[in-house]
Design a protein around this nucleic acid. Structure first.
Lengths: 148, 148
DNA sequence: CGTAATTAGTTAGTCAGCTAACATTAATGT
DNA sequence: ACATTAATGTTAGCTGACTAACTAATTACG
């Protein structure tokens, strides 16, 4: 009857909140804020993306990213430079400070991950991934035929 | 090496974001906003909680709840009344409109849940719950002995 | 060409969530 | 009885995220 209090997504949300808080607690001394790690990781893999490309890859709207990059530029993690062919585009590059911060952040995230999955068997992790991917797929498909 | 892009928590976060967006899309016509359903559900179970009690049960800080309740009072979902013994306390009650909205919201959430878990076997759902609860427990314990 | 449609990014406004600092009221302790 | 401490809720200020409306630059098309 009452779907919420012990629904799986509710539980998931709570677990993620704990996770995020832990990571945040560990990284905010490097002037990296909660939403920023994905951006740093993407840039580490590939520097000089346009904001649009970057936004798509980290699944944020361009508007969100604009604000976030402005802050990250202010703390010196990241740098914007205009594209020299297309003047609408501004490309995002990581600074030395950004790279340094990323190392620390990576460590922090790994340690929280380890704690979160302590005692998990490898096949449990695989199964969890499979279930999550199925959820992702279910939610991606528009709606139609919800339960077949 | 790079822990983030395909970590389980990253995947989880993405799935939850999809879920929240879907629910939000369905409920915002009832003037219920994304963070509010848990509050409504709690109040439905037990009316007249103090803000502190309510905040603990939905795991929000009192500050967050204050702002949220102010908005919910403005849209008429909820009502604050002072306690008559302790003047520091204000108790929160659901209005008729709140109850009506909750019905619609409950339906919306159930439908998204159904879609999210389409094709899941009952034992898969149980397993998922077990894994999430283990994560919750892992993250609750301070830190110490992370990987034993 | 030159105007219209598209694309990139920004700005404004809203909601969610947090911490820290502040009244105000109640409970305690000497 | 009075001063101190604790508890409740609010305010201010921050980050994150979104949509919608805007500006500026580029493409496309008649």
């Amino acid at each position: 009857m009452q779907p919420f209090p012990d629904s799986l997504t509710h539980l998931m949300r709570h677990v993620l909140k704990q996770h995020r808080r832990e990571v945040d607690r560990l990284i905010h001394e490097y002037e990296v804020y909660p939403g920023q790690p994905p951006v740093l990781f993407r840039l580490c893999e590939q520097d000089g993306l346009s904001q649009r490309e970057l936004a798509q890859r980290v699944r944020l709207t361009p508007a969100t990213l604009t604000v976030m990059l402005t802050r990250m530029e202010k703390t010196g993690l990241v740098e914007r430079r205009p594209d020299d062919r297309d003047q609408r585009i501004s490309r995002v590059y990581m600074t030395a400070k950004g790279r340094a911060a990323l190392d620390a952040v990576g460590g922090a995230i790994r340690s929280v991950e380890q704690r979160a999955f302590a005692g998990f068997l490898p096949e449990e992790q695989l199964l969890l991934r499979r279930l999550l991917m199925q959820m992702q797929h279910n939610l991606d498909t528009p709606d139609s035929l919800a339960d077949e």
